[in-house]
Amino acid sequence: MPLANRKGVLDPAAYKGDENMYWGWNTGYIFFKMEGQSDSAQLNKAGTRKYMYHIGLYGGMNTPTINNIKQIDLALSDKSSVRVKNNKPLLVEINADIMQAFTGAGDLKIAEHTVVMVSPFSAVIANNYAKMFKVVGVK
């Protein structure tokens, strides 16, 4: 995608420092980023127990890579349909359950996978977080 089309959140300068979701060295974007401290995390070279999950990869341009792009369908409610009346705005409330990133489809254990960025295990986390969204209300 040419730079002219990378505006707003897609602008590589959109975020500062750790919040940055642009991936420079293997050009693309980070879809899911989670970092923190945990007693279960393996000790790193800096002597801290920090876990880092940066999940990206879109399938590659010229050379095929892992594709972690997920398209998900969310059921709106138990009722069969939702109607929009008289151009009134409809509020769809979506909850994200972060625990699903660890248990959604396969198990992610911080002790076993302390840092995941581009390894094949990224696909497991992507399958997990794809299950984290749920519609909890329609008003």
């Binding site: 040419p2 730079l3 590589p12 420079g24 050009t27 341009m61 010229n62």
Partner: peptide
């Protein structure tokens, strides 16, 4: 490593 495909990036 060829991680970049566009000079502008």
């Amino acid at each position: 490593d060829g991680g970049v495909l566009d000079l502008d990036l």
